[in-house]
Simulated scan of single mutants.
Amino acid sequence: MSQRSGQATSGDELLDRTERSEPLDSATEAFVRHRNLLFTVAYEMLGSAADAEDVLQETWLRWVAVDTAAVREQRAYLVRIVTRQALDRMRTLGRRKESYVGPWLPEPLLTAPDVAEDVELAESISMAMLLVMETLAPVERAVFVLREVFDLDYDDIAEAVDRTPSAVRQLAYRARAHVAARRPRGPVSPAQTRAALRAFQRAVETGELQSLLDILAPDVVALSDGGGVKHALLRPIVGADKVARLLAGGWWEQESARSVEPVQINGGPGLLVRVDGEVDGVVAVRVEDGFVTGAYHVRNPEKLSRVAAETAVSR
C-alpha cells in the first residue's frame, strides 16, 4: 500500500501502527476502521483471500488520492472502490479458474467463534454459499453481496457497479431468485452443529463405516481441491454410501501420523487435517438438521495460508 507521501506500506504495517497507538491521518484512520469490512466484501466477491488482499491494496492506492474532506459517507465510498477493483479482478480470476487443475474451491479462512453468532455473515462466507455465488455473473454477484449481505442502498450499489438504480434493482431481484433456488437449507442451532461435528470427527478418525452413515445426510456432497499438487477428487461425490466409503478409506492418503482437529472454517464447523504435524488440508463441513450435507476438502497448499491464524471478517 502507499502512504500519502507515495512511500509503500502494507496493510499489516497500518494495523501495527494502530496497535502501537501511533497517530494516523484521517484517510488512513478511515481505511483501517473499515478494513475488515472491505476485505469481507472483496472475499465474498472473489472467494480468494489472496486476491482480496490485492484488491485492498489497489483500494488503498485509490483512496489516498481522494479528497476525503469532500467524501460524505466514507464507508460507502470505500465499498464502492473495493467493489470496482474486485470486479476488475474477477476477470483475471476467471481466466485462472479456466486453467485450474481439478475442481476449484474457495480459499478457506480460519474464523473466530463469534463469527458464527452473526448468522447472516456466517452463511454468506460459508463454502456452500460461496459456491452458489460462483454461479452468478460478476455484476450480479457484486449486487447480491452488497445488497443482501451488507445492506447498501440501491443508489450506492449503482455507483459501485456503474449501473442505474433501476437496473440494480432488477439485478438484485434476479440474483436473489437465483441464489434462493440453490442456497443451502436454513442454519441449525450451535448445539446441533457442535454435536454433528463431534460425531463426524469421531467417524472420520475411526473410519467406521456405520458411524459415517449415521451422521451423513442421504444427499451429502463431497468435493475436494488439490490444485494439481495434492491428490483430490476429480468430480463431486454424492450420496451417503459413496461419501462414507470415500471418507473411510479413499479420501485420505494413508499416512499413520494423520490427525484431525475441530476448528471454525468460514464461519462454520470444520476439521483441520495434519500429517506428521504439518497442515495438510481442511474440511469445511455443512450441517443441516443435525446431519452433514456437505464436506469441502481443500488440500492445495497455496490455499492454506489462512488456516494457521484467524482472519477477521465483518459486516
Rank of each mutant, 00 (worst) to 15 (best):
M1D: 08
S2A: 13
R4L: 14
R4C: 11
G6H: 06
Q7K: 15
D12L: 14
D16K: 13
R17D: 06
T18V: 12
T18K: 13
S21C: 03
E22S: 05
P23S: 09
A27V: 06
T28G: 06
E29G: 12
A30N: 02
A30M: 05
V32H: 11
V32A: 14
H34M: 05
L37P: 01
L38R: 02
A42F: 01
Y43Q: 07
G47Y: 11
A49M: 05
A52K: 10
A52Y: 08
V55Y: 04
Q57W: 09
T59Q: 02
L61V: 14
A65I: 01
T68M: 06
A69Q: 04
Y77D: 02
R80V: 00
I81A: 04
R84L: 03
R84K: 12
Q85V: 10
T92K: 12
T92D: 11
R95Q: 13
K97A: 14
K97F: 12
S99D: 12
S99N: 10
P103C: 05
P103E: 14
W104N: 08
L109K: 05
A112D: 13
A112R: 13
D114L: 01
D118C: 00
E120Y: 00
I125T: 01
M129I: 04
M133Y: 13
M133W: 07
E134R: 10
L136P: 01
A137Y: 05
A137H: 08
P138Y: 04
V139H: 01
E140F: 06
R141N: 02
A142K: 07
A142Y: 10
F150E: 04
D151Y: 02
D151F: 05
D153K: 02
D153E: 07
Y154E: 09
D156C: 04
E159D: 07
E159H: 00
E159L: 06
A160D: 00
P165Y: 00
P165D: 02
S166D: 12
V168S: 01
Y173G: 03
A175W: 02
R176M: 02
A177Q: 14
V179K: 07
R182K: 09
P184K: 06
P187K: 01
S189C: 04
A195W: 09
R198C: 00
R198S: 15
F200G: 08
Q201R: 15
R202Y: 08
R202P: 00
V204F: 11
T206V: 05
L216Y: 13
L216S: 12
P218Y: 06
A222E: 15
L223E: 15
V229Q: 06
V229M: 03
H231Q: 13
K242R: 15
V243E: 09
L247K: 12
G249T: 05
G249K: 03
S256Y: 07
S259N: 07
V260F: 05
Q264D: 04
Q264M: 08
I265G: 03
P269E: 11
P269R: 12
L272T: 14
G281L: 07
V283G: 11
R286V: 12
V287A: 10
D289N: 14
F291S: 13
V292D: 03
V292W: 05
G294I: 10
G294Y: 06
A295Q: 14
R299T: 09
N300P: 04
R306Y: 14
A309R: 15
A309M: 08
T311F: 02
A312V: 15
A312W: 03
V313Y: 03
R315Q: 05
